[in-house]
Write a protein that binds this DNA or RNA. Structure first.
Lengths: 144, 144
DNA sequence: CGGTAACCGTCGATTTTGTAACTAACAAGC
DNA sequence: GCTTGTTAGTTACAAAATCGACGGTTACCG
């Protein structure tokens, strides 16, 4: 009978690794700023692009629109972002970090980059190959 | 101001990739057998090890014990597994697939292996390096 | 022994997430 | 202009994950 070693099975391993990396990364923004993952992603996306609509944030960060909607509201209530009606299309709202939000972003980013650098360091020369393989896989699966 | 390109950030990329691989893999066991992810994992673990307690399944497949408990009950109701009290320790139950459960397992496994092989094929010669890098990362993060 | 601590598995309650319906706004065809 | 179809974002509801506590059992240690 054919068997499968679950602990060596690629989908399972990716799932597990992604969860533990996320968990470890939480230490970077969790304790100091009390952010959820969706909130962190909205913050990171707006920090990177200055202004964006909720729709665009969802597309770029691969989040469902209700998740974006809730994260945006939470950040708004913390005064980390503001919304303003688009002059072109009054259905959409242009989001932008407040100075408070940018301050938080500026605090987290160096720590996030250090976190990533630490991981890639432990991989040593394999790091580049991992990134290349990731890119390859992303291409394969993003056709959906 | 320091910025971070979220779409190139390792934790985010792992998370995203893991989600789309899981999603694609769902096509292997979802439509034919209507399994949830926890149920699939319990099935796969029992298929691999013949008999196991719920606790052991949780440890091996990295699932919370309540998740295991409910998945086990669901599979039991489908007559895909049976439980029997351990003679050594009456707190724990020894789980085992029924012939019906093994039949399902036998149907899914070849498709799962083919799915994985297809992925590794598209990576070509980089496949081995990806697996090595994964192993390395797992080691780093499984210390928790 | 006897008592306390640790354990396995289950259950109920809370929180998070996804689905689907809805409002308000735009766009295209006639 | 009017009708029909599509879109951005919110809301209501359902499904799922997580957390805390419990009953019943075993292990530990005086």
């Amino acid at each position: 009978m054919t068997k499968l070693a679950l602990e060596e099975f690629l989908p399972y391993r990716l799932n597990r690794l992604s969860a533990s990396v996320s968990q470890a990364f939480r230490a970077v923004y969790g304790p100091h700023h009390d952010l959820t993952v969706p909130e962190w992603r909205v913050l990171a996306t707006l920090g990177q692009f200055e202004t964006m609509s909720a729709k665009e944030i969802g597309a770029h960060s691969a989040m469902h629109k209700t998740k974006v909607s809730r994260a945006v509201r939470a950040l708004e209530e913390r005064r980390w972002l503001t919304r303003r009606e688009s002059p072109d299309d009054r259905r959409e709202e242009i989001l932008r970090l407040t100075s408070l939000g940018r301050k938080t972003y500026a605090e987290i980013i160096p720590r996030a980059l250090a976190f990533e650098a630490r991981i890639l360091d432990t991989l040593g020369p394999d790091a580049g190959r991992l990134l290349a393989a990731l890119r390859h896989l992303e291409q394969t699966f993003d056709k959906h």
